[in-house]
Design a protein around this nucleic acid. Sequence first.
DNA 1: AATATTACTTGCATAATGCAAGTGAATCAA
DNA 2: TTGATTCACTTGCATTATGCAAGTAATATT
Lengths: 129, 129
Amino acid sequence: MSIQTKPESEVVERRSPCPIACTLDVIGDRWTLVIVRDLFRGVGRYKDFLASPEGISTNILAARLERLVEQGFAERYEEPPSKHKSYRLTKKGESLGPLLSSVAEWGLANIEGTEARLMSKPLADALGS
Amino acid sequence: MSIQTKPESEVVERRSPCPIACTLDVIGDRWTLVIVRDLFRGVGRYKDFLASPEGISTNILAARLERLVEQGFAERYEEPPSKHKSYRLTKKGESLGPLLSSVAEWGLANIEGTEARLMSKPLADALGS
DNA sequence: AATATTACTTGCATAATGCAAGTGAATCAA
DNA sequence: TTGATTCACTTGCATTATGCAAGTAATATT
């Protein structure tokens, strides 16, 4: 048999057809949803993600943003006069709203000391209760 | 100043008071919710977790079960005649139902090829819609 | 023009994950 | 009742992910 060259479209190995397992391959880490939360809050600039109280490190932030863009959850753009880069959610990214909301709700109900304070009114509205 | 000895009750460092960040410190990995899914399905025996299609490795399974028990989401027990060990959700563990349900729902709606098949009727009922 | 800020990258140490093999107790089969 | 099998793990090691600090090139500010 011939040795196959790697195809252009990377074949992503799926652990199983379970929607829970597959979703975890997208958001199953300690940082992705924190960044998505910030995107919902309107945070778009690199330095502003860094300013969030969790203290994400620069290499992880860069890697996560790149991945979110690759996967179509966020897009990178710049407003012409300024050449500053910024990120914002795509429609696909916004689909994570209800899930994010469930996560927040569980935390508020089950982890003492958690506060909805980072979830300003616009966020809360965006997440749709 | 004197050097302090480590206190008995381990002080868990919290990244921030955000319920999303805090929840991710509990379930923010690729396996915890897969195991919780199985617990909701009624899976309780070590070998049965291993038989799930995702193919968790033994060391990770042992570590996650230990952690779930430590954190009060699951408990270990055995039915006296047999000495087989088994795990089941606690009330606290069951509180994860709606969150798990949101995760499943997002996956079904947004990841093609996912199927609800692992979520048998009892699971779907347990998860509440 | 000089300084500061922004959006990263790089290097390295530590922790988490994955894979394979091993172990002792309990169960089952002959 | 004893030998084989199953069960519920543990251990060792390679790979990958994460965390921390420092560095850099392009822009922006003074």
